[in-house]
Amino acid sequence: MKLKMNYKLATKCLYSDKEGTSCDKSGAISFPIYQSATFAHPGVGNSTGYDYSRLQNPTREHLEDIVCSLESGYDALAFSSGMAAISALMEIFSPGDHIISGNDLYGGSIRLFDNINHKNQITFDYIDTGNDDIESYITPSTKAIYVETPTNPMMNVTDIVKVAAIAKKHNLLFIVDNTFLSPYFQNPLVLGADIVIHSGTKFLGGHNDTLAGFLVVNSAELSEKLRFIIKTIGSGLAPFDSWLILRGIKTLSIRMERQQKNAIKIVAWLQTNEKVKNVYYPGLPDHPGYEISKKQSRGFGSMLTFEVETSDLALKILSSVQLIHFAESLGGVETLITYPMTQTHADLSQEKREETGITPTILRLSVGIEDIDDLIYDLSQAF
């Protein structure tokens, strides 16, 4: 008889701590890709536990078990992209509902809120959730508080425990996008959040080769609501993509440690560069969120943003990097540099960008696993 183990995070990246998840009896080390749209029934009223892959598929289920384990959740649901996950989540709200949201979010989230969800008569207040008085924005229609921490791209930090207490006091859902730190460095559910969001495309996948999204919840009630939504709208992650994310998660712990180590060295180099005006990284002792980050996270991650002297210099760097890729996305093994003005936050008005500090001199860096000397040399020659 096998004993159930209480695995550490690095081990959970390889094995779900849920017993009986494998459908395969061959002894295969790599979990199989069940590339099947439908499943046969032994008879009327009898089922193997799987009916149709829109509802559930063994490969997706195994992936969900691992992500749920990593976040210490009740249930996890895997979607075809991060935006598909957020879109499905918004379906638990009704016309007239109000959501308090962070004002420094991924531009795609704001685009969804301001267009699709606004059309469906859901309203939003965008505030600085790390500093503003959240309770002053709560109304009888408020149903949730939605934050990213650290934020994209300005790396602002919100105190998860503090906001969780406010949400609980007012009977609100507390939603945290945990993409930037991944479950390896931060677990919002443990700190009091109700729902955690991940763009699985990023650190969980880690190889810039597929799209995925996740919702991890802390209760049976939320699980039931979202399971109904995912089977109804049909945005579940496909078997092969589920397998790619499974493969990526196996090296999550190693990648996160190496990427963070590289990021810390790049931050130090940027601070010595006279052409760099500001560096935004929660691991800097003078960062406003440094103490909170130390309290609620196990690491500072590998995302950083920096501001250069002029917009011309920013454009020169983007066109001059050779090893580093000028591209959207983040969290992969390759280092990527992004220009939020024209990429991740292009759909925001100039006024909204300026409110959060996104100017033509701002660059975002997702640090990969390359040799640090090569990365710094490339940045140096690009400057």
Rank of each mutant, 00 (worst) to 15 (best):
D104P: 03
L77Q: 07
S81P: 10
I92M: 06
S94T: 14
M90D: 09
S87Q: 08
D114E: 14
M90P: 06
L77N: 02
I99M: 06
L89K: 06
G107V: 04
I110G: 04
N103Q: 12
H98F: 09
D114T: 12
I100D: 05
D97H: 05
F79I: 03
G96A: 09
A88P: 03
E91R: 11
I116H: 13
A88S: 15
I92G: 07
S94E: 15
H98W: 10
I110N: 06
G107T: 03
D97Y: 01
R111M: 15
S81T: 15
F113K: 02
D114A: 09
G108V: 00
L112N: 12
G107P: 05
S109W: 04
S101I: 07
I86T: 15
G82H: 12
E91C: 02
M90V: 08
A88H: 04
S109V: 13
I110A: 14
N115F: 12
A78Y: 01
N117G: 00
I92S: 04
N117Q: 14
H98K: 10
F79H: 10
Y106F: 07
I92W: 05
G96P: 10
S80A: 14
D104K: 02
M90Q: 12
I86M: 08
N117H: 06
S81F: 11
I100L: 14
G107S: 06
A85G: 02
L89A: 05
N117C: 12
A76L: 04
G108E: 15
S81C: 07
F79P: 08
G102N: 13
S80N: 13
A78N: 06
E91G: 00
F113L: 10
I86N: 07
S101E: 00
A76N: 05
R111P: 07
L105W: 01
I100P: 09
I116F: 13
L105Q: 12
A78I: 00
N103W: 04
L89C: 10
S80K: 11
A85I: 03
A78V: 02
D97N: 11
S94H: 15
S109E: 00
E91V: 01
I99K: 00
F93K: 06
S87D: 04
M90N: 11
S94N: 15
I99N: 02
P95K: 15
D104S: 11
H118E: 00
G102F: 00
N115Y: 14
M90K: 10
H98G: 04
I116Y: 15
D104H: 05
S109R: 08
S87F: 07
G82C: 09
N103A: 07
Y106E: 03
F79S: 07
P95C: 11
A85Q: 02
H98L: 05
H118S: 04
N103R: 15
A84L: 01
H98Y: 11
L112E: 15
G96S: 10
A78K: 01
I110Q: 14
I86W: 05
D114W: 01
Y106D: 06
P95A: 13
A88F: 04
Y106G: 06
P95E: 11
L112M: 15
A84N: 10
D114M: 11
G82V: 12
S101Y: 00
S101D: 00
S80F: 01
I92N: 08
I92E: 09
N115A: 03
P95W: 10
A78S: 09
F79D: 06
A85R: 01
S81Y: 13
S80C: 12
G107F: 00
I100Y: 03
